[in-house]
Amino acid sequence: MSLGPAEVAKIAHLARLAIRDEDVPAYARNLSAILELVAQMDAADTTGVAPMAHPLNMAQRLRPDAAAEPDRRERFQAIAPQVEAGLYLVPKVIE
């Protein structure tokens, strides 16, 4: 599988990453090489093999329903790029 500049641009948009035009060919080359490496998987017969999402065969633990978190807005918003009246500000969201 090899990716061209147009495909790289499409993936970059999906991932919300601005890539300079002059860098696109290099990314396309690198990504294609990685996909070639990855394609070695095709050689393996995985018919009937259960996918493994986690190393350990454990089940999800459940937490008691208790509201215990204090309000730390001031601390959290001290590291925010832009806030006003307790809200995080972003360029206008158009619906």
Binding site: L3, V8, I11, A12, H13, L14, A15, R16, L17, A18, I19, D23, Y27, N30, L31, I34, L35
Partner: peptide, 21 residues
């Protein structure tokens, strides 16, 4: 796109792109 494009270096960008794909 710009915050992320400027914030991440080339290897991180590569891996995000591969994973997204």
């Amino acid at each position: 796109t710009r915050s992320r494009g400027e914030g991440f270096g080339a290897e991180v960008t590569r891996r995000i792109l591969v994973g997204t794909f």
